[in-house]
């Protein structure tokens, strides 16, 4: 059940240039939050911005949750300015998270850029469910923006890196590294990142017979399935099912259910 709670900020520190990690004390939310779910954070008391901002749970701790975020615009700038001891209104947990099938032998997490945010909580849960840490592929523009490598290594994950400029790891995108890891029908892939990277990942999964879950993004207003602003096109043809809501039907979807050809990449940033 989602809550709307005023929570105390425990920490809000830089994680990389223009990226921060905020930990908030939220025992009720932490008890229920699942990897892949998110919260809507109120960034201002006034109406600039008016809407809350969706953020995935990076970690679900015993009494707290952590968010890892990129400073993009006004809302995230205001988040970045918040100090420990202040309170923030947190609405969550929301959405449908990742599902973990422990009968599958190999689990690979694939992240592009800030898409890495929900994956530490997932790696934790996969490790517990499968008694073995998953493999993780992290892609970023350049070395300075590579996030969470140490977090995954400390969990015992095998970590593969890719950067656009080759400053660390393989030169190229995360989906190229994934291809080299040769997923097969006994592999579960979980991906979060820019839409082109997730489409490429979905195609690799489809070709190799691997199962693939993707965590999508969209502009959101309510987070509760009411406004219908956050939809993406699914492969389901009938009028009532064509548009699926990222906030309540997702954000995690089976990659096969998304109509990747319908997505208009020109609107992505």
């Amino acid at each position: 059940m989602p809550y709307v709670l005023d929570c105390e900020i425990a920490a809000n520190d830089e994680a990389a240039p223009a990226h921060r990690r905020m930990r908030v004390c939220a025992p009720q939310i932490a008890r229920e939050a699942q990897p892949g779910q998110f919260a809507m954070l109120q960034t201002a008391d006034g109406y600039a911005p008016f809407l809350r901002r969706p953020m995935s749970f990076e970690r679900v701790l015993p009494e707290a949750v952590a968010f890892l975020y990129k400073v993009e615009g006004e809302g995230t700038r205001l988040l970045a300015a918040m100090r420990p001891g202040q309170t923030i209104s947190v609405h969550g947990p929301l959405g449908k998270g990742f599902s973990i099938d422990s009968t599958i032998s190999r689990h690979i997490l694939v992240a592009g850029g800030i898409g890495v945010a929900p994956l530490p909580a997932l790696a934790d849960a996969v490790t517990r469910a499968c008694r073995r840490p998953p493999d993780v592929v992290i892609g970023a523009r350049t070395k300075r923006f590579l996030l969470c490598g140490d977090v995954f290594r400390s969990m015992g994950c095998e970590v593969y890196l890719a950067t656009d400029d080759g400053s660390v790891g393989e030169k190229g995108v995360a989906s190229h590294v994934l291809e080299r890891l040769a997923p097969n029908p006994d592999t579960q892939i979980y991906a979060c990142g820019p839409m082109p990277m997730m489409r490429a990942t979905a195609q690799i999964a489809a070709r190799s017979g691997a199962a693939c879950q993707v965590s999508l993004e969209a502009q959101m207003a309510c987070g509760d399935g009411a406004c219908l602003g956050c939809v993406v096109e699914s492969i389901f043809e009938n009028e009532g099912e064509k548009m699926v809501r990222v906030c309540t039907d997702g954000p995690v979807f089976d990659a096969q259910h998304i109509d990747w050809n319908a997505h208009n990449f020109a609107y992505d940033r």
Binding site: Y47, A48, P49, F50, L51, A218, Q219, M220, A221, C227, L228, G229, C230, V231, V232, E233, N238, E239, G240, K242, M243, A262, N264, Y267
Partner: peptide, 28 residues
């Protein structure tokens, strides 16, 4: 009849407001 509504993106925030073009997606 049920309606799928408009293509996304359907929603954008503007100063102290929201612009939406949902296009009457509804269950029918």
């Amino acid at each position: 009849k049920p309606r799928a509504g408009n293509a996304p993106p359907r929603l954008v925030e503007t100063p102290a407001g929201i612009l939406n073009a949902i296009g009457l997606q509804n269950v029918g």
